[in-house]
């Protein structure tokens, strides 16, 4: 079976500062990857390269065999619709109601009808238990609610894969659970996901694979059980010892 995402020799530097170099990795359909690593390791930078929000310095990112790095702006837009992203700070559109937040891209990018888009939005909102919020503006929501809406917004485009950059780090501790619940549900439904997180228990229970990033490389790719019980590299050992 061909991998859904294939990353080849991916390198990113800001001016002379090399963040990571020659990274190779593959993601198969339905897999959940947790990307772990110390602060400043380049996890966010790596994730943002995958949907080209940050342009890699060199290398390839193949989605279903098509390279995002060398594609034209038009093709890129098309490919991007297949890659959802959920941000640490939610980034809901402040000027739009929850419903409009969710339906904007399906209507404007996919050309979906308004009625169909709203119907879909409502059913997704029901799934995360927030259908009653469809007409309010983002600023009246709690962090946990906002992040669940942000996930719904990504889902509304029917992406093949969703990237999560520390989706629970900006939340009050008591709100973390409700967001992780939604993500677990998605994992159960075989959604492909790459998750940057510091929630070790969650990563352990939900992931198919752990990627550990440090010193400009992905140092380990392991099954969760192996990674947490038997890390191979010194860096990973040090990282885990600090986590517990």
């Amino acid at each position: 079976m061909e991998p859904m995402i294939k990353i080849e020799n991916l390198t990113k530097q800001f001016k002379d500062n090399v963040i990571f170099k020659d990274v190779n990795a593959e993601v198969y359909k339905g897999n959940v990857i947790s990307l772990l690593g110390p602060s400043g390791a380049g996890k966010s930078t790596f994730l943002r390269c995958i949907n080209m929000l940050g342009e890699p310095t060199s290398g390839k990112i193949l989605l279903d065999g098509k390279d995002l790095v060398s594609s034209s702006p038009k093709e890129l837009i098309k490919l991007r619709t297949n890659i959802g992203m959920v941000f640490q700070n939610f980034n809901l559109f402040d000027n739009k109601t929850i419903l409009d937040n969710i339906t904007l891209a399906p209507i404007k990018v996919k050309g979906m009808g308004k009625v169909a888009a709203e119907e879909k939005a409502h059913s997704l909102l029901k799934m995360v238990g927030l259908d009653n919020k469809s007409d309010v503006y983002p600023n009246s929501l709690s962090g946990g609610q906002s992040q669940r809406i942000a996930i719904v917004r990504a889902l509304a485009m029917d992406p093949e894969v969703i990237l999560f950059d520390e989706p629970t780090s900006a939340l009050d501790p008591e709100k973390v659970g409700e967001v992780l619940e939604v993500m677990k549900e998605l994992a159960k439904q075989d959604m492909t996901m790459i998750i940057v997180t510091h929630e070790m228990e969650f990563a352990k229970s939900v992931s198919d694979e752990i990627w550990f990033m440090d010193d400009g490389k992905i140092q380990e790719k392991q099954a969760p059980k192996d990674f947490f019980e038997n890390p191979q590299t010194y860096n990973a050992k040090r990282f885990l010892s600090k986590m517990i």
């Binding site: 991007r80 619709t81 941000f87 980034n91 559109f93 904007l104 891209a105 996919k110």
Partner: peptide
Amino acid sequence: AKGQSEAALSLGLS
């Protein structure tokens, strides 16, 4: 905030 336009771009808006 930059996050606003990044969110839009990540959804496939031009």
